[in-house]
Nucleic acid binder design. Structure first.
Lengths: 339, 339
DNA sequence: CTGTTAGCGCATTCAA
DNA sequence: TTGAATGCGCTAACAG
């Protein structure tokens, strides 16, 4: 019997539909023997509860939106994979939405939750439109970003510590003049990575130099632009910490164009450990965040939020690690001077 | 009034709920004046039909699954973007599912449609589990792959022509000894690209040589392995056509390890034009498929399929183009001999 | 512990 | 052209 409904099962088991429903969702509220009868009828009929009807009755949708800053960024794929895996295993569905740089789109996805097209939102953008943030918020989990004024369940990494780790690695290799290409400064994560960079220098007794900092935007081209600008300022550096891998690769490319070798002349550390970091030339030393696990955890938090099990606002910190590859090397005793 | 339901609108307009429903979904079956009253009441109350209830009643879900071969492959991101855009605009939601290399997972997603958790499936895997293919199929559109035995709406590119185009480009640069690193041979697309490679050679009066063909698997490492194998066989070649960009980059990397320069010593053409093809070193000459448009079209076909508007099985061919960058150059008169 | 009853919000018969 | 009535499949009060 294909596509049996609860009524047919009830009839088959000789009980009411309510009992079938209970036997399946709250087994301990049903007598042992009754439960057995119901389960047998379920088995015999091949009954699978109609998910749509369940959700409709419960006023839930089973949908969760994963809202990202830029849907074409491969970074989010592993996150999505982690979210999807845990969601699928728990009967949820995941819709990935693209915020673009666009307030309106974010608002539209929030609206989707208000319109009961989705149960909750996993937010991976660093902002919320003002009018949205003002109103009552839907169930929301923030991953890898920070909404400074909002008290929401969050899974994050310590960007400050990560930046510190990257720069410490360079210092350990004997570098003293280390440049930094930042991410967009409106994002907390960019500011934190920069803070880590500065702290690492200071901790090592190195005076930070403003002209060694370039404000990028996370795109490949701003890695190139960063190198051009840094060199143009006449600064001297033997190493660069780029706030993400794309900019790091842009930097490698531009340095090469200037006739400088990586890592012989300049060492570079990136951030994210994207797929191509390992296969770029040279393979990139970088900071890895456990992307898939972050996705899984976000979904776990969302489920606990939706089921009302969470006591208070949960905050988790994921660990990062430095992946050492071939784009960093020991500083030459005679430092390179940029042309 | 927020979250008004159809009953409240009916009351406000002084008509029955049935009339409200009709005024909204089949306007011409309602008198002009009545319709105006209803529309006004809708406006005044801010009524938005409850999507979940509509879908439940109609036995539809509004969900479409995009099933891909490997969810962590950036290739699919733009496809997803295109699908999502058109879906969102038409009130559909898109769930991206990962088939892995796993029959069971594919079956599970097909099951999702049978269980009415989704309305249809956009298939981007080149196979269907035998038992699934045997049963009645859910609404399905095939994108960029081919299920040889099934007659389904399809959007494809001409992989044969594309392979021909790539190799023709190399021949035009004066290359005569051209190697090919193929994709997995169980996929039709791999076989077609190889056929195009062979045809281009033959058309130019060049005798294809079996030892210049290496069977890869679309992964970076098989690009490396391909070069090792080709060189190991003692073959002579001045150019390589790789069936995708990842393998092309692997090939570049391995050639470099052998002390060969790209494109001075060996030219390379890839396939796909992934994001990093443009920013790799050297920027990769490659075949571009209109990924986003392919996504959009797939969703359009799916909608027409679901609404029963499609007359017969639709088949569309998307155009490809050769993107010429720096990984290919004119062949040297004295051909390189591999070591 | 179990059955009866009453909807969730809407689209669609069937009459009028 | 419209309204009354029905039910999609299920869960949750409320009695018993």
């Amino acid at each position: 019997m294909r596509g049996a409904n609860i009524r047919q099962v009830a009839e088959l088991a000789g009980v009411s539909t309510a009992t079938v429903s209970r036997a399946l969702t709250q087994p301990d509220r049903v007598a042992e023997s009754t439960r057995a009868k119901v389960l047998e009828a379920v088995r015999a009929s091949g009954f699978v509860p109609n998910r749509q009807a369940v959700d409709f009755r419960r006023q839930a949708t089973g949908n969760v939106v994963l809202l990202v800053r830029d849907i074409s960024n491969p970074f989010y794929l592993d996150i999505y994979g982690g979210v999807e895996e845990h969601a699928f295993a728990n009967g949820y569905r995941v819709l990935m939405g693209d915020a673009g740089a666009d307030d309106a789109r974010v608002g539209r996805y929030v609206e989707m939750v208000r319109n009961r097209q989705a149960d909750g939102l996993i937010l991976m953008t660093g902002w919320l439109p003002a009018e949205t943030a003002a109103g009552p918020l839907p169930p929301m989990v923030v991953a890898l970003e920070q909404l400074p004024d909002l008290d929401l369940p969050t899974i994050a990494i310590d960007n400050r510590k990560a930046g510190h780790l990257a720069v410490q690695h360079l210092i350990g290799l004997g570098h003293r003049s280390i440049a930094h290409i930042t991410g967009p400064m409106n994002l907390v994560m960019s500011r934190e990575r920069e803070a880590g960079y500065l702290a690492a220098l200071t901790d090592a007794g190195i005076e930070p130099q403003p002209q060694l900092i370039f404000h990028g935007n996370f795109h490949y081209s701003s890695g190139q632009a960063g190198i051009r600008a840094l060199v143009g300022r006449g600064g001297t550096f033997t190493a660069v910490f780029a706030a993400n891998d794309e900019m790091a690769l842009g930097a490698v490319n531009e340095l090469r164009g200037l006739g400088l070798r990586v890592p012989q002349d300049v060492s570079i550390v990136g951030f994210d450990d994207l797929v191509f970091a390992e296969s770029s030339d040279p393979p990139l030393t970088t900071i890895r965040q456990p992307r898939r696990a972050i996705g899984t955890e976000s979904m776990r938090m969302m489920i606990s939020l939706l089921s009302g099990q969470s006591a208070g606002v949960e905050r988790i910190e994921a660990r990062v690690e430095l992946i050492e590859r071939a784009s960093t090397a020991r500083a030459k005793t005679a430092r390179h001077r940029s042309p």
